[in-house]
Every structure is written in structure tokens, then in C-alpha cells.
Computed example of a mutant assay.
Amino acid sequence: MPDLTLSVLDLVPVRRGQTSADAVAASVALAQRADELGLHRYWLAEHHNMPSVASTNPPVLLGVLAGRTRRIRLGSGGVMLPNHAPFVIAEQFAALEAAAPGRIDLGIGRAPGSDPVITALLRSSGHTSDVDAFPNHVRDIEALLGAEGAGLRLATGEQYTVRATPAAQGTPDLWLLGSSDYSAALAAQLGLPYVFAHHFSGEGTERALDLYRSQFQPSEHLSAPRTFLTANVVAADTAAEAERLALPQLQHMARLRTGTPLTALDTVEDAEAARLTEPQQDLVAGMSARWFIGEAGDVADRLTAFAQRFGVEEVMVSPSAGASAAEPIDRAPARERTLELLAARLPQGVLAAA
């Protein structure tokens, strides 16, 4: 088993007392720390109209990070394609690739990333993307990003070429993301890299990876299956401190899954004093068992065993530690500390090339 490569997934969390500007500043600082530590990728998720999540527009935020980091790969984890016109996404990521050559990943997902009302708003400007058209739109983006562009045949019979950027020197790495068999099968069919969202529920991972690997068809871009996994992680100097830091995010997810109206994330102190319903307590206990929460050495060992179990060389961690009320409003010290502790224990992994 080669050394373990670490990457980061960020939703730009917003806690009580923070503005969106504060949350973005904290994520910029986190990305810069990941860059300094030698981690491989930094991806931003797409979510909408959530009081605890500021990663509504990955391409815009990635442009900010491209100017504030040095070497780390930057990408979307992912752009929710049914919300957007494929040509717009291709143009955005071609521009990012031009600004940060060789550092851009375009991760594409099929879910809307929000509720039906927000999905309708996103499509009201005339976007033609929808879930049923997803495979064709993935192919369109792949063609549009290439140097030769995509060919359209007009009603007059004339051939018309469309390019995402006039003179591409390189193209972003295109990844398919998913939490079901559908995306695994499609990634295999198209010969694309694939990421299974293990951090969602921790279920179905083995089946999805087996399906992807067994059905993979080589393409001009990729000759063999290429994949990694995601995981929710809280590492600290002691197990007790890690469990305390994990409470705000765990309780927030329990409220989400039981239909409780959401707010910004609690501070650690508020989470310690919170009262949950019995179903919410059960959800917290179940998630705690699946997440990687604990003393840093133990978490590093468990992540390595996790990677070995599923035959991957890279794990993308979502650093889920909460913040105390007294900590700087524009930083996320415990999230940064999670990355620092893991980098200290997996130095070969964080410097390895995926």
C-alpha cells in the first residue's frame, strides 16, 4: 500500500456570530494552511440557501483561493450540474485553469444540492440542464473544455465550433462524484475518475467501487480506474477534546435529518449545553461511530486502514471540528489543527502525488 495522500473537502461552514465574509475568510486561511502542509487537493462543495453553509458558488470561491494559494490543487466537490448550463460551467473552469494552470479539478455531481424551490430558482433563467440529460451534459463539458471544442450542426447545415476558452493550454481534470450506483456506472462507462461520497452515510461504498472498477472502460484521458474516498474527520490532542469539538456538526446533521429548522452552527459551548430528542441522540451516536473522531494518532491509523480496506491511495477529509465562542471569528483553529495533526503523522502521504 503506497503512502496515504490527504486532501480537503470544505463546505465553508458558518457558525453563530459569523458573517459570510468571516466564514469565507476562515476557509481561505484553512486552504492556505492545507497548501503549506503539502496536502494534495482542496475542494469546495455546492449547497444553497442553508444558514450554516457559505459554499454556494464553487467557481467564484475557487478563483479567490487560486490567488491565495501556491501549489495545492483546487476543485469543486462538486458543481451540481442539473443547476447550471453546461457551457457556463465549461467556461468558468476553463478560466480557472487559465488562471492556475495544472491545478484545477472539475468535480461534477447529479444532485441539486438544495430543496425544490431553490432548484427551480436556479433553473428559472433558462438553464437546460436536468437530471435525465446528465450523461450528455457531462460529455458536452468534456468536449467544450478540449482544444478542438464541440461541434454543432446548425439548421442551415453549417458546422459551428464552440470552445470554452479560445486557446486552451490545458484542461481541468474532470471527475464524477456520487453516492449511488448510478454515478459509479456512468463514470466507468465514460472512462472518467470517480469519487464516492463516503462521508454522506458510510454505506454502499464497497458496492459502488466494485461496480466502477469492474465496468471501467478506458478512455483517451484515463487508462485505468482512478478513485478516492471522502470522510468526516475531527482530530485533536486527546480523544475527549475531539469528541467535544465534533458536537456542533454532529448535532447539526441530526437536526437536518429530523426536519428541525436549521440555524448557523452552534459553538462548542452551545452544543455541550444543547438538548436533543431521542431520535437525534441516536443519529449523533450512529454518526460518531462512522466518522473519524479522536486522538490524532488513532485517527491517522484508522484513515490508513480505511484506505487499505477500499484500495485507495487518497482520502479527502472534511475537517468537521467546531469552534469556541472565544476563538477568532474569521478563523477555524480546530479545523486547521485537524489538518496539522494529520500532516504530522502522515508526512509521506500528504506529500505524495495522486
Rank of each mutant, 00 (worst) to 15 (best):
E158F: 04
S114H: 09
T119N: 09
P116N: 03
G126S: 06
G146Q: 10
P166D: 05
S114I: 12
L121N: 12
R153Q: 07
P116M: 01
A167F: 08
D130Q: 03
G170W: 03
R110Y: 04
D140V: 07
T165S: 08
V162C: 05
D140L: 15
L121C: 12
A143S: 09
G149F: 06
A167P: 03
D173Q: 13
G109S: 07
G146T: 14
P172C: 09
N136S: 13
P172S: 10
V117W: 02
N136P: 02
I104M: 12
A120I: 08
S125M: 10
G157H: 03
S124K: 13
A133W: 01
P135A: 03
R163E: 01
D173A: 14
P135T: 07
G170I: 10
L152G: 00
H127E: 13
G146R: 14
G151T: 15
E142M: 10
A167V: 12
A143C: 05
I108R: 02
L152T: 04
A168D: 02
I108N: 07
G151D: 02
T156G: 09
R110C: 04
Q159R: 14
G151N: 00
Y160H: 12
T119H: 10
G149D: 04
G151L: 05
T156Y: 01
T171S: 10
D130K: 06
A168P: 15
G157F: 01
A147N: 03
P135M: 03
P166Q: 06
L145F: 06
T161H: 03
R153S: 01
G157C: 06
L121F: 12
R153D: 00
F134W: 07
T171I: 15
E148P: 03
H137T: 07
V138R: 03
R110K: 14
A167W: 10
G109F: 11
V162D: 00
L122C: 10
A120D: 10
A111T: 08
T156W: 02
A168M: 09
Y160L: 14
A164H: 13
R110L: 09
H127D: 11
G109V: 11
G149Q: 07
L145E: 00
H137R: 14
G107H: 07
T128E: 13
G146W: 02
R123Q: 15
G170S: 13
T165G: 04
Q169N: 07
P166V: 04
R163G: 06
H137V: 05
A120Q: 14
A143G: 02
V162L: 13
L145I: 12
P112D: 02
L121I: 10
R139G: 04
T128G: 12
T119K: 04
Y160M: 11
A147L: 06
A167G: 06
T161D: 02
H137F: 13
R110E: 04
P172R: 12
A133E: 08
A150D: 00
A150K: 10
N136K: 09
I118L: 07
P135E: 01
T161E: 03
L154M: 10
A150E: 00
R163C: 13
I108G: 08
Y160P: 06
I118M: 15
L122G: 11
Q169A: 14
N136V: 05
V162P: 05
Q159A: 11
T165C: 06
A168W: 00
Q159I: 11
A155L: 14
L106Q: 05
I118A: 15
D132Q: 07
S114C: 15
G149R: 09
A143W: 02
